[in-house]
């Protein structure tokens, strides 16, 4: 039994691979932006004194963090369908990924909020900053700055996890691979190529976040803190 690999037969499908990779990045981009918003809101909600709101936010975070993404995607997919709502596979995938990454973002942001020294907030109050100003300048921005590395690795993990969306026929990279391998009978070669593409995508995302960090946090850059 010898292993024979025939990469050219699979590589000639490169336009499909490229389209799949682009869709994977689109999924990741939408879910990252929406999930960051949702997660930040959930982290703020969890810190409020209203027991109902903070309880609901805690329940959301714990439920999502303790169930598999695959189950969540199916629940969103069939849940929306049973309500009689029809969405594209892409929209369902974005919704499920957003709900998923929102919970992890909330935990990371909470750690960031807790790391803000109490004295900073008191000082801001002493300077008569409004509540909104305090939240934005003293709590939110420094918290994001502190947890930026953790946030970015979570978003890279999200991009990799989006491969699960192939199971509800969103046409991202893994779904493209499933299709090509069933068409060419060259499964091993196909998945090797796709694995390499994912490694490249994750390196590109890491580099992108690193560059974004340099732009967003000039203080970090000046102090030479690694991002």
């Amino acid at each position: 039994m010898s292993l024979q690999l025939d990469f050219p037969a699979v590589l000639e499908r490169w336009p499909s691979f490229l389209a799949g990779a682009v869709l994977t990045l689109e999924l990741a981009a939408f879910a990252t932006v929406l999930g960051a918003l949702l997660g930040t809101l959930a982290a703020v909600g969890r810190g409020t004194h209203n027991a109902l709101i903070s309880g609901a936010c805690k329940a959301y975070v714990e439920t999502i963090r303790n169930t598999p993404l695959l189950v969540q995607i199916f629940l969103v997919y069939f849940g929306l369908a049973s309500l009689g709502l029809k969405f594209s596979a892409f929209a369902v995938a974005v919704a499920a990924l957003t709900i998923n990454v929102g919970a992890y973002t909330a935990e990371i942001m909470r750690a960031g909020f807790e790391a803000i020294p109490r004295g900073q907030i008191e000082a801001a109050e002493g300077l008569a900053l409004s509540r909104l100003q305090i939240y934005w300048h003293i709590i939110l921005l420094p918290a994001v700055e502190k947890v930026y590395p953790a946030l970015t690795s979570q978003f890279v993990l999200l991009m990799l996890a989006s491969s699960v969306c192939s199971q509800i026929s969103a046409e991202e990279l893994t779904a493209v691979a499933n299709y090509i391998q069933s068409d060419t009978y060259r499964a091993f070669e196909t998945y090797i190529i796709v694995a390499v593409l994912y490694v490249i995508l994750s390196l590109v995302m890491r580099a992108g976040f690193w560059g974004l960090g340099l732009v967003l946090f000039p203080r970090r850059r000046r102090l030479g803190t690694p991002l």
Binding site: A161, S166, A187, Y191, A195, Y198
Partner: peptide, 11 residues
């Protein structure tokens, strides 16, 4: 760590 588990499973 740069490859999704799903792809590793298929591999």
């Amino acid at each position: 760590q740069g490859t999704p588990l799903l792809v590793i499973l298929f591999l």
